[in-house]
Nucleic acid binder design. Structure first.
Lengths: 123, 123, 123, 123
DNA sequence: GTGGTCTAGACCACG
DNA sequence: GTGGTCTAGACCACG
């Protein structure tokens, strides 16, 4: 299901957030559909319910999902992902500045970009 | 001198490493020239000497500088920055994948790349 | 009919109680008139019968309505609303103290009071 | 020190937030001054460090304080309390509407307001 | 069964 | 010593 790396410097709850956002973007989690319950997801991933809860809380604070205390947790929809877009582009900027400063060439970076977006614009 | 941001999620020693690498790339720190002493740099930047020491140790482990225990710390030269290049491109890849997953478009990213390399290829 | 907000921090049964009290105050539910049955009201509002039942039980405990177990639930009359008045003024006090502590000015509060009572004293 | 009521419907971390905001408003906690450490405050209040941490996290999300992971937690200043003002006035509005609906008179409310702001404007 | 709160306690990075 | 992460586990309200 989700790809979690316990050894990562990213905490588990952050990885979980990113995975959920990815699923929303892919349309696997649709608008207003219910996410797995805190307990169910924790059990499936073999992690503590509190960790799942923290990820859900963060996503709620970022306006991506909403919680009905007794009914469950629901997707708000892709139009609410602007905060995540902002964070993501900020991270790109930081990574690129660091790369430039350590001598990475622009052509190298363009190649990486093409690699990740899989040159689909040429298909 | 160096730009350190205590509010950053990056620890200070990492920021210090990046700054030193930047200076080497810019030619401000030349090959075989001596870096400031741990104590002097710590004092100048108003940070803990242990932090400077850790940055120097890391740079030595990454083969960027070398130490003569009594005489001081010296620059190896730009040709030794491959480890840093590798780390930097890895960080770019992670940032780009996250961005793609949260719905950022390729054109946006290309724009950011151009921005940071300041379109110098057209000069 | 009643305004229920499932997203509210107030549980539904509490909202239901408040709505019924409002109707009694407005004269829509008259003294000794019969309230809708638990099942009918639950059905109409699309909520769990247990929730309606709980609201009725609470209102009975607060002496606002009375039950003839077979015949139904009846309104006691506006003179029995003192408990609700007490709760309401207590909530005002708490809200006002919190507001004062977080720096809200008295004039702001007076304005809010006028707004809600719609300056009807000038009509 | 702080007034905490474990029996309150307000969770402890919320009460803690309100108390801290009160102290900032009173000038007891000055701008840029350091708040008690998570552990120290937890110990003093006889509560779990996680609970203190949650209150601090919430206040940080509301832009009232800021955290330097290793150095401590600091006050941002009274000018950042607008979120709290908004929440407080929203709570007043809700409480007043409920009161009006349960038959409380405007004059009663004005009296309560005067009581809490202690008629200081007439001194 | 759902999420929310809270505790006790471990381990970690940073400086 | 500072905050951050995570676990295990208890108890609660709601419906």
């Amino acid at each position: 299901m989700f790809s979690l790396d316990v050894k990562s410097k990213d905490p588990i709850y952050t990885q979980l957030e990113k995975n959920i956002v990815r699923y929303i973007n892919l349309g696997i989690y649709e608008k207003n559909s219910m996410l797995p319950s805190v307990r169910a997801l924790a059990c499936e991933l073999g992690i503590n319910p509190n960790t799942v809860s923290k990820a859900y809380k963060n996503l709620e604070a970022k306006n991506v999902i909403y919680t009905f205390s007794v009914k469950g947790v629901f997707v708000k929809g892709t139009e609410s992902l602007t905060t995540f877009n902002k964070i993501a582009t900020d991270e790109i900027k930081t990574a690129l500045r660091d790369a430039k400063n350590s001598g990475v060439e622009k052509t190298e970076v363009i190649e990486i970009v093409n690699e990740i977006w899989e040159r689909k614009e040429n298909d």
